[in-house]
């Protein structure tokens, strides 16, 4: 039995030993306080690596092709960021670039690196700064929201011009989906604690 403090309401409680894939809720405010130990990092690591590959593809091949009055224009994901920058909208440009491309990529690379290191037997304590950095940047990562934004923009513009989704769009969709499945339910801060050899006397 371990003593644990609920991060939401602050109630201190004893934590029974949990089976893998089970989670414990706070007795008072019903928020999640702990998860069962992660036995294998194979599945989340595979999903994150796959997401990273699709992330790289989505950024390098055509995203949407647009045809209007004989003009054909091919766009990449990054075109939105550069167009805003050219328009002197630096704040919006940086915001869009960070939340749609940079932070998700950084997040996935960090998560992959962390899991690889854990599997190679690096102790959780030494990886803690990385996991804290991951938790800090997590709210700035919104690939799913970006995908819905792309859908709305495409529908709006379809009245005006002919839009053809490029292979990059499908890659971005795959990336967003794998990101949600791979990282969405992964509590790396908790995983790191599980991999640390337990000290006695606490």
């Amino acid at each position: 039995m371990d003593a644990i403090r609920c991060e939401v309401c602050g109630a201190t409680q004893s934590l029974p030993s949990l089976e893998p894939r089970r989670r414990a809720l706070c007795f008072r405010c019903k928020s999640e306080v702990a998860r069962g130990p992660t036995l294998s990092l194979d599945a989340p690591l595979a999903l994150c690596l796959a997401a990273l590959i699709f992330w790289a593809l989505a950024n390098s091949i055509p995203f949407i092709t647009l045809e209007y009055g004989g003009i054909i224009q091919t766009n990449r994901v990054f075109t939105g960021v550069t167009a805003l920058w050219m328009d002197h909208q630096y704040f919006l440009s940086v915001l869009v670039g960070m939340t749609s491309i940079a932070i998700p990529g950084l997040q996935l690379s960090l998560a992959c690196g962390l899991m690889l290191a854990l599997r190679r037997g690096v102790s959780g304590g030494r990886l803690r700064p990385l996991s804290r950095l991951l938790a800090f940047i997590a709210p700035g990562s919104m690939p799913g929201v970006y995908l819905v934004g792309a859908f709305v923009a495409a529908v709006k513009l379809s009245q005006l011009a002919t839009l053809t989704p490029g292979p990059g769009l499908y890659c971005f969709g795959a990336f967003a989906l794998l990101w949600v499945i791979g990282l969405g339910s992964l509590d790396l801060e908790g995983v790191i604690e599980d991999f640390r050899p337990r000290r006695s006397g606490r």
Binding site: G80, A83, L92, A150, K156
Partner: peptide
């Protein structure tokens, strides 16, 4: 954030 992304995509397209 959806509308911010819509603006960025529209002006780039």
């Amino acid at each position: 954030m959806i509308d911010v992304f819509v603006v960025s995509l529209t002006i780039s397209l």
